[in-house]
């Protein structure tokens, strides 16, 4: 298996009112191709910062992140934008979308921008509609973003993250703003996506969500305190058992 993400001695420091706040301290880990990794930890431990720094959305203070063989630190802004467009997908806790576009247009926007699809907008539209249908929101294609439910919107965000067939999808608490039913639906789609070969790295507070991942990293005060391997999630009947195992481990870690 290839490493798609390799993090070495990653540090992130914020300076607020001339005071240094070391949010990430020498973090080391890697993610293999096709893996589904969850990052857990108490509030303020640096989970989201880790996700944003690893995905190149935020600048690191020190260390090294290699994404698909490219050192993110050495990439220019434009090269970074290309990597984000072609090789990364993002899902956020809040369902950020362009207000003046329909759901379908929001989904296909990265594909329209992609050089791979230049001059082939009808194929892009077809792909967008197919993805929407697959995630069960096909009927909302021409709706505005304020005309659909939170769950539908988050699934639309997943569609958008998938439209360019990224190598890795980063998700920051993708179910944080959803009720249990919507949360389950969204996670079901994420697992399907992972099973189809897409690497997923997500941040969550929810053990039930993390239990669907193959590996869980536990972060405290900017350091990875430990990791727990659950193995690939294939059958839903095993979920309760995985959740129990994970909770036990998390208790040991001080959760």
């Amino acid at each position: 298996m290839n490493k798609v993400i390799d993090v070495k001695d990653l540090c992130k420091t914020y300076v607020v009112n001339k005071k240094q706040n070391n949010v990430l301290r020498n973090v080391n880990f890697s993610v293999e191709e096709g893996e589904m990794v969850a990052i857990m930890g108490p509030s303020g431990s640096g989970k989201s910062t880790l996700l944003y720094t690893v995905s190149g959305m935020d600048k690191m203070t020190a260390g090294n992140v290699t994404f698909c063989g490219k050192e993110l630190e050495s990439l220019s802004d434009n090269e970074m934008a290309d990597v984000r467009l072609e090789d990364m997908g993002f899902i956020f806790q809040q369902m950020y979308m362009m207000k003046n576009l329909t759901i379908l247009d929001n989904i296909i926007l990265p594909a329209v921008k992609s050089k791979r699809n230049k001059g082939n907008r009808s194929a892009v539209e077809k792909k967008g509609r197919a993805l929407m249908k697959k995630l069960g929101i096909g009927e909302t294609a021409d709706n505005d973003i304020n005309e659909v439910s939170g769950g539908q919107l988050q699934r639309a965000c997943i569609c958008r993250s998938m439209i360019n067939d990224p190598k890795v999808i980063f998700a920051d608490e993708p179910t944080g703003a959803l009720n249990r039913t919507s949360s389950d639906e969204v996670m079901e789609e994420m697992v399907k996506l992972n099973n189809e070969g897409t690497t997923v790295m997500l941040v969550t507070h929810d053990a039930k969500v993390a239990a669907k991942c193959g590996r869980v990293l536990y972060i405290v005060d900017g350091n990875i305190r430990g990791e727990y391997k659950l193995g690939r999630f294939e059958r839903s009947e095993t979920l309760r058992d995985r959740e129990r195992q994970l909770n036990n481990w998390l208790m040991e870690m001080g959760w």
Binding site: D77, A81, V83, R84, Y96, M98, L109, P110, K113, S114
Partner: peptide, 10 residues
């Protein structure tokens, strides 16, 4: 920020 996140250049 969203546009940047999904790969739009500045």
């Amino acid at each position: 920020a969203l546009m940047k996140a999904i790969g739009f250049k500045t």
